[in-house]
Write a protein that binds this DNA or RNA. Structure first.
Ligand SMILES: [Mn+2]
Ligand SMILES: [Mn+2]
Ligand SMILES: [Mn+2]
Ligand SMILES: [Mn+2]
Lengths: 228, 228
DNA sequence: ATTCCGACTTAGTTGAGACTAACTTTCAAC
DNA sequence: GTTGAAAGTTAGTCTCAACTAAGTCGGAAT
């Protein structure tokens, strides 16, 4: 039974997800980058890349010393895992009352283990959400991925009015910090001023008295769209 | 870090759970029984039992050729996994709309992977439930387990009035069959008659027109308490 | 007492997926 | 062009948790 090896392990899933994310931007993902992202050794990555390329159907196109890209199959699988991940984050946040810095780790464990039935249940419960708590788009049931916000807050000028669309979700510390300042997806921001010395931005955040000051390294990880 | 090996694998968890269930009734669990329950070879079980006994602290008391019992530590761990399992089943049933024959497999995968935070979220969401959809008691937050119903429907006589408390959850087929006949935890039953030939029971089930007839092998797997 | 069967154990393999150590390739700086 | 560092690969090892094949043990029936 099951001739077309439809099952993938936790390890394989996480590799595919990493490769997917690393290849938004650069053409191929390098061994080093994947190793860093997954916090494992380069040697382990080389071994796994060979396996992924040798699968039937192949999950990646691997060229020695030149890195990898996902095949159509690998990409489908990656998107499926990402859909699980983001639906789970949304569920943890909205239904179980997690804070947005707690959701990632839990989702990263659960994403490999839930069934289609579970996914379907979440979608129904949450009303087919389109974005996770960090503002990342959730691939739809056909695994089509909406556009990911890329305009960074750090690129703005005084007087600009924007809406926060997405925040880099890699760093729990940062997420806690931003939550404290009410910098969350959906909030309106008016840029008051920018320091010429340190590049600090002064902001007026909607529903929040007083101004918020953010350093440039932080502003680089907040993505916005123009307001109205 | 983490000197007191507090982590346990999926495999270890499932062994402990099996041993817990097998030792309700008999004093020690045999290699054969565990192998059958987990659908793996006896040899694999022997190997694992040695490991469980060698853990620090030991999870089981293992005597060659005489079987195993859980230690206090093993029992705590088993009860924790069972708590996860039954909370998850309740969640899947009540919140995600699973039918009661679908919940077991999903819960058996998720039970190893959810955090304390998740458990806490479920408890809050579900209102600290005491029983899972099959009527099995959920260990409380101190891992104290309530009494499990043991009086089988098959032991009753015409005229007896009872309430269904629990149904054996091992067989999805049976669960579907019983759901079709409205034999669910909480339903009232009046025993109308019992056949002397085949032992069939005729029943009147609350909220259900017409009578229900059950064979003795099935009635043995339904557990009840006297009504009022 | 012998025999036999089922339960149990031992020994040796396997496959995943990680690791370290050592080697090779590439490429930029001098 | 040589050199050095970073990136990548290879080789060999480890742990976990499964497997099969080949015993051993113990009790029941003869
Ligand atoms: Mn993951
Ligand atoms: Mn996210
Ligand atoms: Mn399980
Ligand atoms: Mn149950």
């Amino acid at each position: 039974m099951e001739r077309t090896a439809e099952h993938t392990s936790t390890a394989v899933d996480d590799y595919l997800k990493s490769i997917f994310h690393l290849t938004r931007g650069s053409v191929r993902a390098g061994t080093r980058d994947i190793a860093d992202a997954l916090r494992i050794s380069q040697a382990s990555v080389t071994a796994m890349l060979k396996k992924l390329a040798a699968m039937e159907p192949p999950m990646v196109d691997y060229r020695k010393r030149e890195g990898v890209v996902l095949t159509k199959h690998g990409e489908k699988r990656a998107l499926s895992v990402i859909r699980h991940h983001r639906l789970l984050e949304t569920f943890l946040y909205q239904t179980l009352g997690y804070s947005w810095d707690e959701v990632h780790d839990e989702a990263c464990r659960l994403e490999h283990v839930i069934s289609d039935r579970f996914e379907e249940g979440l979608v129904k419960l949450l009303g087919n959400p389109t974005h996770d708590p960090h503002g990342d788009p959730i691939p739809d049931h056909k695994l089509r991925l909406g556009r990911t916000a890329t305009e960074a807050l750090s690129a703005l000028h005084p007087g600009d009015r924007v809406v926060v669309e997405r925040v880099d979700d890699k760093d729990a510390e940062l997420l806690r910090y931003l939550a404290g300042k009410s910098v969350l997806p959906g909030r309106r921001i008016l840029v008051l001023s920018r320091s010429n010395f340190d590049g600090n931005l002064s902001l007026q955040v909607s529903g929040c008295r007083g101004k918020v000051v953010l350093g440039p390294e932080i502003a680089e990880r907040i993505f916005v769209r123009l307001d109205r």
